[in-house]
Design a protein around this nucleic acid. Structure first.
Length: 450
DNA sequence: AGGCATGATTTTCG
DNA sequence: CGAAAATCATGCCT
């Protein structure tokens, strides 16, 4: 039975359905013959499959103009079966058909309704939280955003890695190199995506424009399509961002691991640190300036100096005996140095801290064997101020080895150092004024840094 | 492999 | 917040 009017009726029903239940129409009610799936994408003139609803609902199906509509429909449906040339010819014929404008406007109308009801679904992607997180992170890591160059400045790494040693070590520059590599890849990929996106968008828009001659395509619809495309591409971009973040994280963790990896200090550094420690044994708390000085001398960072002193104090205190030998070596060394220098009349030899002036006694928590209080001794023998200080400190150990000075209580006139009830090293905050019995105020700041 | 040395990190404390 | 104390993790020596 190929009664065209039946087909028309079906089409009309579909059209009505499309108008009222567009989703149903989209999901495919169609009693209409679908074109074969192939040969479609190369044929811009081919009617889009989605909304094929034809003319207005016929009040009374019958011959006449409806006949024409049915013909047109059939032609439309059959168009994809035809060869390109043939199709072009038919397209042209259709375009010139007298019913075409009317049919087109109906299609437009229906389309309008459909789009209207669809519109509610779309346009609801909030500024993706995850995307924002990724963006922020990339920015924070210095991957996105302006390129930061220059070694001295506070790099992104240093800013985020807390109080870690932030030297210009090999690892650090390695890290930076890798980071910039990631950065490069990220940007080139991003650019590629953007380019592809815009290319694709233009392509689709051209296609739609082309198609708009044969099927109703509103600007809104194009816009929507573009949005969809952008959405898809931004998903890809998000993936890119995500993997970049991962890469940075991995790099970072590796870097941190490497940082955590212990590497013994150079002999020079150990030397410098030990010298200071044993020559300021009474008060082994280098000031910030002294720390900087030591760091510079030893080729390490200030925080490493702090770590070292922290460890040293603890370990020394815990097991003094173990350090005796070392102490003697350094003590003697510094003592000799000090005396030499003193003999030369130069008083700025040791990397002393201004606050180390007090050679107050300190006592070990766990050993009844306390340190000798030598101040009266030195005080009387060589009141030369700061340099004497280190000498005196150094002598502590030599003497400690040879003789036994168990006096815990220092010269009462000379107690700038608080001795805690538990007897730990306790730095007096402002000892300097009292520390120089020789009346040498200059020793307050015995230039630790030359 | 095991143990000690040692630099770094974390936790605790004043 | 800085220092002490505890702990971790690796280097290095045997």
């Amino acid at each position: 039975m190929d009664d065209p009017s039946r087909l028309l009726a079906a089409a009309a029903a579909a059209a009505a359905a499309a108008a009222t239940h567009p989703v149903g129409a989209l999901s495919g009610i169609p009693p209409l013959p679908l074109p074969p799936p192939d040969a479609e994408e190369l044929e811009p003139a081919a009617p889009h499959r989605l909304p094929p609803p034809p003319g207005p609902p016929p009040p009374a199906p019958g011959p006449g103009p409806h006949q024409d509509t049915g013909d047109i429909l059939q032609q439309i449906m059959a168009i994809t079966d035809q060869s390109l040339d043939e199709a072009q010819a038919r397209k042209h014929a259709l375009n010139c058909h007298r019913m075409k404008p009317a049919l087109f406007s109906v299609l437009c109308e229906i389309k309008e309704k459909t789009v209207l009801s669809i519109r509610g679904i779309k346009e609801e992607d909030p500024p993706d939280a995850q995307l924002m997180r990724l963006d922020n992170m990339l920015l924070a890591e210095g991957v996105s955003g302006p390129e930061k160059r220059g070694r001295g400045g506070p790099s992104a790494v240093a800013a985020t890695s807390g109080g870690c040693p932030n030297d210009n070590s090999i690892e650090h520059s390695d890290y930076r190199a890798k980071l910039s590599q990631i950065r490069q890849i990220y940007h080139s990929e991003l650019e590629k995506y953007e380019q592809a996106c815009s290319e694709f968008t233009t392509h689709v828009m051209n296609l739609l424009r082309e198609q708009s001659r044969t099927r109703p395509i509103s600007p809104k619809e194009i816009e929507r399509m573009v949005n969809i495309i952008h959405g898809k591409f931004s998903t890809i971009q998000m993936q890119l961002k995500q993997s970049t973040c991962e890469a940075v994280m991995i790099l970072r963790s590796r870097f941190l691991d490497a940082r955590r990896k212990r590497r013994n200090f150079s002999k020079q550094a150990t030397e410098v640190l030990n010298e200071y420690f044993y020559s300021h044994l009474s008060n082994p708390y280098p000031s910030e300036e002294a720390k900087e000085e030591l760091a510079k001398k030893g080729g390490i960072t200030v925080s490493q100096v702090s770590n070292w002193f922290g460890n040293k104090r603890i370990r020394y205190k815990k097991n003094m005996g173990k350090f005796q030998e070392e102490a003697n070596i350094y003590a003697a060394k510094t003592a000799v140095d000090a005396t030499t220098v003193v003999a030369q009349g130069n008083q700025a030899n040791s990397p002393s801290t201004p606050s180390s002036g007090s050679s107050g006694s300190f006592k070990m928590t766990n050993s009844g064997d306390s340190f000798i209080n030598l101040q009266s001794l030195t005080y009387q023998s060589s009141p030369v101020g700061a340099s004497v200080q280190s000498q005196m400190d150094s002598l502590h150990h030599v003497i400690h080895q040879t003789g036994r000075y168990d006096s815990l209580v220092g010269n009462p006139l000379y107690t700038t150092q608080r001795i805690d009830t538990n007897g730990s090293w306790q730095d007096a905050t402002t000892p300097s004024s009292i520390t120089s019995p020789a009346g040498d105020p200059g020793s307050v700041n015995s230039d630790a840094s030359n």
